[in-house]
């Protein structure tokens, strides 16, 4: 069971990486506007119009 001394810090470090990813996402404003990104991707490739 001595392996727990290595595995526990390792798993926490892995979790810490995700926490840092969350930090980056929150800081770059990804949680500020939750509605627009959903519609931003809707328009298809631009095509010629005859309007």
């Amino acid at each position: 069971m001595e392996v727990i001394f290595i595995l526990l810090p390792l798993s926490l470090a892995l979790g810490g990486v995700f926490l840092l990813a969350y930090f980056w996402a929150a800081r770059s404003g990804q949680f500020e506007d939750l509605e627009t990104p959903a519609v931003r991707i809707l328009p298809d490739e631009e095509r010629e119009t005859d309007l």
């Binding site: 500020e32 506007d33 939750l34 509605e35 627009t36 519609v39 931003r40």
Partner: peptide, 10 residues
């Protein structure tokens, strides 16, 4: 104009 960001909800 470098960038425009729209916030639809607000």
């Amino acid at each position: 104009v470098d960038q425009v960001r729209v916030d639809l909800a607000r």
